[in-house]
């Protein structure tokens, strides 16, 4: 249903050569007004509906970046599958990493409803043209990092993704509903790892605290730059792709997470952290945005590793794809002959 001619009647008419340029402009602004009215009315936009080109482009960029993040996100955790401390933990981690692959696929499917090809999106990832979440460019040094990632990184991701379940673009919203349902176990298994380590010996507690210290700040930066430095946010809010600002979501995550850390005896790695009795919110120290931007620009610990691992995995799978294609061709020929 997404591969049929995606143009609407209006677009087809606009594409036809005999339409006067003047009519086109009038029609475009009428379409735009009608589109915004539908958004304001909380209606979902579906693949074949008319949409402004910048809306489509913004969605393609955001959804594909989101998909890439899920896929690259498998790498830091995948490293630990063979080193999980028990069979129980190994089964859980395998299931979680498999879920992340699924999230990537739901999202690539959603992006494809906007008229792009999956192979092209993958190529953009592999050539470094497309971005993914900076969080996955940090290394996973110990088993406690797997706990911290599930608890903090997946926790931050869920905080971001819950409002996306009501995003104005139907296929993206539906993908997010599925993702959010699966994410809730991810955060809990991570928190359970941290809890068990905090109940262990001094060395284990130290390991958990060290992971907390390294992952806390990067996970806060997952919400993106502060509202003042986030120029595209206003438009995304007007289109209801975004429902809450970066700072609002970050605050929500902080307020939920600090009591969880304290409950299991972890120390927050922020000497300036305090609870504001008046606002009812926690207040944090300054975030190191220079570090954030340097990781975005590819200066993170693992930028090169992650991309290389992706490219290598894709290249190593080439023979499987070729064999599958050859097999399908052979079957087709067989059926045609029969």
């Amino acid at each position: 249903m997404y591969t049929t001619d995606l143009r609407t009647k209006a677009q087809k008419a606009a594409d036809a050569k005999d339409t006067g340029a003047k009519d086109e402009i009038v029609e475009a602004s009428e379409n735009e007004a009608r589109f915004q009215a539908r958004i304001d009315d909380e209606q979902f936009i579906e693949p074949k509906d008319w949409m402004p080109e910048p809306y489509r482009k913004t969605l393609v960029r955001q959804i594909s970046q989101h998909a890439h993040s899920e896929i690259v996100g498998m790498l830091p955790e995948g490293n630990w599958i063979s080193r999980a401390p028990s069979l129980r933990r190994k089964l859980i981690l395998l299931a979680k990493v498999q879920d992340e692959a699924g999230h990537g696929l739901y999202l690539y499917s959603a992006a494809e409803t906007l008229g792009v090809e999956r192979g092209d999106l993958l190529e953009q990832l592999h050539t470094g043209k497309a971005k993914y979440s900076t969080i996955f460019n940090y290394p996973t040094l110990t088993w406690a990092d797997i706990g911290a990632i599930g608890w903090l990184v997946d926790g931050a991701a869920v905080t971001n993704q819950i409002p996306l379940c009501r995003c104005s673009y139907g296929p993206y919203a539906r993908a997010m509903v599925k993702v959010c349902k699966e994410e809730s176990f991810h955060q809990r298994q991570g928190f359970e790892i941290m809890t068990v380590m905090m109940e262990g010996n001094a060395e284990q507690r130290e390991m958990a605290q060290d992971a907390m210290n390294r992952w806390w700040w990067p996970s806060l930066m997952m919400f993106g730059p502060p509202d003042g430095d986030s120029p595209n946010s206003a438009q995304s809010m007007a289109w209801k792709i975004k429902r809450f600002s970066n700072d609002e979501l970050r605050q929500r995550f902080i307020d939920a997470t600090v009591p969880q850390a304290e409950a299991i005896g972890l120390t927050m790695p922020d000497p300036d952290l305090g609870f504001n009795e008046v606002t009812g919110h926690y207040e944090i120290g300054d975030l190191n945005w220079d570090e954030f931007w340097s990781v975005v620009k590819g200066e993170g610990h693992c930028n090169r590793d992650r991309l290389d691992a992706r490219v290598e995995a894709y290249a190593d799978g080439a023979w499987v794809r070729e064999a599958a294609e050859a097999y399908a061709e052979k079957q087709k020929a067989k059926h045609a002959a029969a």
Partner: peptide, 29 residues
């Protein structure tokens, strides 16, 4: 380039209910 045919997927969640569209996958057949 991995641009295999797209298939729409429908699932019957349990007997007695109809199949419902859930998404799509790429496949060679």
């Amino acid at each position: 380039k991995g641009n295999w045919d797209l298939f729409e997927i429908f699932i019957r969640s349990k007997n007695g209910l109809s199949h419902k569209h859930v998404g799509s996958v790429h496949a060679t057949d």
